[in-house]
Amino acid sequence: MSDIVLDIRNLRVEFPTRKGVLTAVDDISLQIRRGEILGMVGESGAGKSMTGMAILGLLEPPGRIAAGSIHLSGDRIDGLDDRALQAIRGRRIGAVFQDPLTSLNPLFRVGDQLVETIRLHTGLSRSRARARAKDLMHEVGIPAVEERIDSYPHQFSGGMRQRIVIALALCAEPELIVADEPTTALDVSIQAQITALLRRLCRERGTAVLLVTHDMGVIAETADRVAVMYAGRLAELGPVDEIVRRPNHPYTSGLMGSIPSLRKDVDELQMIPGSMPRLDAIPPGCAFNPRCTHAGPRCRRETPRIDSPGAACWLALEGEVA
């Protein structure tokens, strides 16, 4: 089992507020192996970005990890102090954020931002770090590296900036990349290029990737396995092919039904009635029960949970909802 890079056990992220404690991530367990892309999908507020930030140790106070553990290649990384986290962020875990327009510091040349990151983590000399920066830019598919390395972020297009961001994430050959909505701010054609790039890097380098997105299409194209999040909980976990073909959780089925397809002629896309509950109004039992057409008494009473592949649904787990 030594190829498990990320091991999250019973993770719980809480936000103490004036009105009470909100649970943004509720008892999540999952693993990612070397060279594997785990897609994490869900609506806004489902807790997927929170999970990513918790792994990076970048939860905005007062948000905090209230329970559970996060291990990176066997080393526990939750609850570390800032100094220890600095040695992990960028070095062992790379990050890619949603908006490449705002992820790069506008006042520094992209080459300088790359060199800074490389030197922070590897201690290479300035000139060797610069050579490595050029290699990375080349590797993520930036043309005319010699000219572009001294450009400022505003001189790049959105897709090119996201490539720079990915190059920044790769600076220190991390074991894991947390990609938080890496394609959301991009055109569809650019999206495909970026996901293809992530996939290629993951294969070639054996990097594990946590791909957070609300776009099931991106997951279906990119990920090996998928974790479906709903109201801070894990709804379903499993290989992407299986879940796309045969979803077991009613919420996942709803998500699949909402993807437009070119092959099938559908007049109207399916829609899940209602909306995800706010964090301060999660119903007892299964969080999805008010919107679920199959819900029974048990769904309103007990919360179904999974810590291995499967669906957190009484119907799937027990075959009945009574």
Partner: peptide, 26 residues
Amino acid sequence: RSDYIKFARARGVPAARVQWRHALRN
């Protein structure tokens, strides 16, 4: 509060450097 500051931290830039170099210049 901006993204590039958060991203600089995610890159592993030490807090003091983030504040005095990346943030202050902006």
